[in-house]
């Protein structure tokens, strides 16, 4: 079990070589993946998806529909995996939990004044507790980017630790919102703060800001996870979210995870994709492999 220390005694984050990262990442994208491995990879991607709807216009109906899709991805083709979880606002947790009763699909809830995180500690804690009480299995919190950029790392660290405590048994994913952190050095620093403060998962983005989960950013975060694992032997999960809408990009991400962290992370306990349109693209690729015919989105559910 990980014991959170205070910010002052976590190791100093190494600086990130941006050019080196880009070269390494480019190499992950040039792997040739043959059909059989591709098929397995696509199944794996499906099982790692956090099917997400985080909009002001979300209705209980929309959430129920998405939950149904979460465990009936494409009924005309049997034996497909379900997605890992659905990801909703706290107010929709109960609806989602009811809709997913009896399935293995988990319910994740965003919290802490998602997506900006601009609120008081008390509100954020209440937000989190509400989601947990409603039955959320996982909490996706956002860090206070404003405080982080102002150099108040202690504040960010303590906030994550406090939210972790409020989560109880729910697993905590910490969203860094890398699109607002500007540099890979900041991404690395925020990753280290989140990990040492008690994150079970670190997650790139809210999906509301561009750029989101670029491979460079994911790479930097994976390296933070690797360094932590090498030091302590404790595994931390990774969730790139936002902007991963094609199977190809998802497979490139899997290649990267395998080569940096190894096979232990290649399951939905330790790696997730936060996405809304990725599932359909993966389904279309699977059907292309099975039928030999290029597919049309007309024959897959509308998200």
């Amino acid at each position: 079990m990980k014991v959170p220390t205070s910010f002052t005694n976590i190791p100093i984050s190494p600086s990130v070589d941006k050019v080196g990262v880009e070269e390494r990442v480019a190499r992950f994208q040039s792997r040739s993946i043959k059909n059989e491995s591709k098929r397995q990879g696509l199944d794996l991607v499906l099982s790692m998806i956090d099917l997400t709807t985080l909009e002001g216009k979300d209705t209980p109906g929309k959430v129920k529909q998405m939950c149904y899709k979460a465990h009936h991805l494409h009924d005309s083709y049997p034996n497909l995996p379900t997605v890992a979880a659905v990801c909703v606002f706290p107010s929709m947790v109960k609806t989602a939990k009811t809709a997913l009763l009896g399935t293995s699909v988990k319910v994740a809830s965003v919290s802490t004044a998602f997506p900006s995180g601009q609120s008081t500690r008390a509100v954020k804690l209440a937000d989190t507790k509400f989601a947990v009480d409603e039955g959320a299995d996982e909490i996706d919190m956002v860090i206070s980017r404003g405080k982080f950029l102002a150099g108040e790392y202690n504040f960010v660290f303590d906030e994550i630790a406090a939210i972790k405590e409020a989560c109880g048994k729910a697993r905590l994913k910490v969203i860094l919102e890398t699109g607002e952190l500007c540099t890979l050095d900041s991404v690395r620093k925020a990753s280290d703060i989140a990990i040492y403060a008690g994150a079970d998962f670190i997650k790139t983005s809210t999906g509301k800001i561009q750029p989101a989960a670029t491979m460079q950013v994911t790479y930097t975060m994976l390296m933070a996870i690797k360094d932590y694992y090498d030091t302590t032997g404790i595994m931390i999960g990774m969730k790139p979210a936002g902007g991963i809408s094609t199977s190809k990009l998802a497979l490139h991400n899997l290649v990267m995870v395998k080569e940096i962290l190894g096979n232990n992370w290649l399951n939905n306990d330790w790696f997730r994709f936060g996405a809304s349109s990725l599932a359909n693209d993966v389904l279309m690729q699977i059907m292309k492999l099975e039928t030999g015919v290029y597919q049309s989105s007309d024959y897959f559910t509308i998200d």
């Binding site: 030999g292 015919v293 597919q295 007309d298 024959y299």
Partner: peptide
């Protein structure tokens, strides 16, 4: 054949 079989 690819164009003819394309579902879209």
């Amino acid at each position: 054949p690819v164009l003819a079989s394309h579902m879209d």
